[in-house]
Design a protein around this nucleic acid. Structure first.
Lengths: 116, 116
DNA sequence: TCCATATTTCAATATTCATTGAAATATGGA
DNA sequence: TCCATATTTCAATGAATATTGAAATATGGA
């Protein structure tokens, strides 16, 4: 990961609503959530939310797919782990064995009522 | 750590020069570096650097002390680890045992030529 | 005391950002 | 086809940000 990519990801997360959105999506796991559900959960106007989703998306932190009328947004765990890796890159100088690189794993995909 | 604190820390890191400064200070370890040395290393104007140090400092990511004519800036590892912890807080839903929380440890303070 | 070094403060400027309101687009169902 | 739902697009606005240049402050040494 390049410095510039890290800055983009950090900037995407460096905003109240976007950080809340992202954390919600991390909790939701790789299946993601429809935009409307995020809007309801966080009390955001739909157009404002689109604006924030766009920033998260162009930083690579979330992905979208359409499902009927809904747009489903999902956290991108690999991108997040790349960021965490970059941040801990030059920690523990001289004692790398003491260093715990962070990993953010999605939950084992749970078979929901909707999924087969 | 509160959402607002995390936003402050992320915003502090979400800038090219500041991220570079912070990484340099992490590498330097808890002893820190004089402002001028950071300015030289990264090619930044001293007043610009002061501006960026201020933001890192008010986010709690660095601390300063004076040493003669120099101001010595040092990364605050606890603050960084708090941020990493916050970011990985709601990862691994339902499978927390798989989750590696990140830790950024400074090198064991090495006795330099200057220190006793 | 006077000077050079190291860093900060201040004001000005151009850019980017978040939010709003109104209008547009896409999908699914009657 | 017509309508309601879900979301995006667009333009406008005010606030925050990064950089610059010039001047100020603090320290240490001659």
């Amino acid at each position: 990961m390049e410095n510039a990519d890290a800055v983009a990801a950090l900037a995407a997360l460096a905003q109240d609503h976007r950080l809340a959105v992202f954390r919600l999506l991390v909790q939701a796991g790789p299946e993601g959530l429809p935009a409307g559900q995020v809007a309801d959960a966080l009390g955001l106007a739909p157009n404002t939310l689109t604006f924030h989703f766009d920033r998260l998306r162009s930083a690579g932190l979330v992905a979208v797919r359409r499902d009927g009328r809904s747009m489903i947004y999902a956290a991108q765990f690999e991108a997040m782990n790349a960021l965490l890796g970059f941040l801990t890159d030059n920690c523990c100088q001289g004692a790398p064995e003491q260093c715990a690189p962070a990993v953010c794993l999605p939950a084992k995909p749970k078979r929901s009522k909707v999924t087969v």
